[in-house]
Design a protein around this nucleic acid. Sequence first.
DNA 1: CCGGAAGCGTCAGTGACTGTCAAACATTAC
DNA 2: GTAATGTTTGACAGTCACTGACGCTTCCGG
Lengths: 200, 200
Amino acid sequence: MSAGGSLREVSRRAVQSRIARTAESLFAEKGFEETTVDEIAEAVGMSQRSFFRYFASKDEVVFDSLERLSEELAQRLAARPLEEPAWDSLRRSFDPVAERFADPEHRDHDAAIQRIIDRSPRLLSAYLGRLERLQRALTDALVARSVRRAERGQDVVVLRAMVGGACACLHAATVHAGADPEVFGPSLDRAMEALRPAEV
Amino acid sequence: MSAGGSLREVSRRAVQSRIARTAESLFAEKGFEETTVDEIAEAVGMSQRSFFRYFASKDEVVFDSLERLSEELAQRLAARPLEEPAWDSLRRSFDPVAERFADPEHRDHDAAIQRIIDRSPRLLSAYLGRLERLQRALTDALVARSVRRAERGQDVVVLRAMVGGACACLHAATVHAGADPEVFGPSLDRAMEALRPAEV
DNA sequence: CCGGAAGCGTCAGTGACTGTCAAACATTAC
DNA sequence: GTAATGTTTGACAGTCACTGACGCTTCCGG
């Protein structure tokens, strides 16, 4: 379980990044569905079989960077002070997303990925599946926090719905902002202010 | 565009229902991934090619009934009185879902479908994709209503987030309730009460 | 130098899906 | 009744994502 530091893990990640970068440029160029795994593998210079040794599916390549962002969000939430209202903790745990919008390097990359996703209904579904997993992780964090605060009354359904609502704000802001960092932050704040739950 | 009344449309729907019923029992029996389209087609008594003439994909069979429920929800929302707060309109447009939980016939069917979906990550993603489409429809309805109320201030992002929040409540209640109708209604109400936006 | 472990390519196979074509069938026109 | 017309179907072949098996190489500790 020791967090991925072993030499071999590192080189594995390097190869994955190389594949991801290559694939993304192909996807951006010709579209996701129109790009075959064979083409990606050839562009990288490996066999199709090896491609599937680094990614379990063609979809996963697209979410390579997103996956790590998700983990970061969940960790952020868990690290928030106990006394902070849950809704604010959720908002603050979304900060890394806003930061990525601010950084030109990440922004262009993320915008490209988002364009790829938006053009493929299948990828959009897969993306929402990831988001659902993120929501489970965030809900778990909120439940754990509620236990640590020794709250009895907290209702799992409400926590779950709250996380869903917060992620809906995130999603709405992302969709609405496109790649514009000036729009994203304010949109997210407006949405989350409007949906803020009364108490908790 | 005349809503599906033509003789041919009706018989088409009949065949689709027959396929769906057959497929669902196979899925429930052996699981979604483990059931091949060939098996479904043979059980129905048609070629694989014909199966794909009635459903664009294996996934679609599972969502056959859900799709019509979605349409009903969107229509309900559009039919709600203009002066009703948006959040209440959303809650009321979810009533058909609760009604289905109450009806034993539908409940068992829906519970079976939900079990099938829950067992397959791929189907879960597809399901979320449908939910996203529903959200778009609901958002459109709210936007149209906001226009008809001649409101200037309404913010698309906020409306979008509100719909997302409401659907998150619906989803949370569904997941939490399993097949228990006694749990679903109260869960949905608690979640939606907790997330109710301040105004609008 | 030898042993095994790890990474890789090749090959063969499955299953979802698509295009094409020709036969079967029903529909309507005459 | 028959011919023309259109719709529905099965058969066949092909693509693409993905998987399992096998055998080769490379690298590393003993």
